[in-house]
């Protein structure tokens, strides 16, 4: 058994459940999240699962889960604790924090924690930014491995396979490291009821932005939010022949004639 005694921090976000389709508010000021089912961002769940697997493999021995948000994000922290994280930290923030805000908050937390591995989801399914991990790595001046589909930790090094345009790229980097998770890294487990009960007794600290001496950025301002152009449902066709002739007469595409190669 490997006894590396590494410390991991996983940052998680409470977001709209991935099965729910969001609606835009009538006044176009933002999306309407009232009475909407909220969950842990799926990529964050993958990050928690990976940390727990590293712990089960004897590589990591302490997992801190951090979420930045209003009080109800404690629900998602409890879910992560039920999956196997050791400690939770909520950073109270009632407005939407930008990726740079989150990276700065995590940088502050790192000053106290001295973690070896940061695991974050590659993007959150609400703002779809795909930025926070890279920003955190820049602020910590440490290497980053984004869109990870395989992680190996060996002798204070991380060997990570990344999903990139064109295929897979494997890189090796010294710890500490920031890793962001892609879909194929693992399949998160479901928490068993006894674990959910145990999670209620795990420590969950709360800090404010003032405790961390953080002022939120203001460089990006949300002006309005609109619905995308609606696509009309089209025509149902009855046969392959009808489909081909319809496509041929639809001036927008060139469909090759029989025998002629495209």
């Amino acid at each position: 058994m490997n006894t590396n005694h590494l410390k991991a921090i996983v940052a998680i976000k409470r977001v709209i459940d991935y099965n729910v389709k969001v609606r835009v508010k009538a006044d176009l000021s933002d999306v309407d999240l009232s009475n909407t089912k909220m969950s842990m961002n799926p990529f964050c769940e993958i990050a928690v699962e990976e940390a727990v697997r590293l712990k089960e493999a004897g590589i990591v021995d302490d997992i801190l889960v951090v979420s930045i948000g209003p009080k109800n994000c404690q629900e998602q922290i409890r879910s992560a604790l039920a999956l196997g994280a050791d400690r939770g930290l909520q950073v109270e923030c009632d407005v939407s924090a930008s990726p740079l805000d989150v990276a700065r908050i995590l940088q502050k937390i790192q000053q106290e924690e001295g973690a070896d591995i940061f695991l974050l989801g590659k993007q959150s399914i609400d703002t779809d930014n795909n930025q926070t991990g890279q920003m955190l790595a820049a602020l910590l001046d440490c290497p980053q491995a984004t869109c990870a589909s395989r992680i190996q930790i060996e002798q204070n090094k991380a060997i990570v396979t990344r999903e990139v345009d064109g295929g897979l790229l494997t890189v090796e980097m010294p710890l500490p490291v920031v890793i962001t998770t892609d879909l194929r890294l693992n399949e998160p487990r479901f928490a068993a009821l006894p674990k959910i009960m145990q999670a209620k007794r795990k420590p969950l600290a709360v800090k404010t932005l003032a405790d961390l001496d953080i002022k939120l950025t203001t460089d990006i301002e949300l002006i309005s939010v609109s619905s995308p152009a609606h696509r009309q449902a089209g025509i149902m066709l009855n046969s392959v022949d009808e489909l081909i002739s319809t496509l041929r007469s639809d001036a927008q595409v060139q469909i090759p004639k029989h025998g002629e190669e495209a």
Partner: peptide
């Protein structure tokens, strides 16, 4: 944003 189910205008 939101998988393209909303479009944000930002400054």
């Amino acid at each position: 944003i939101y998988a393209g189910n909303a479009i944000a205008t930002v400054k």
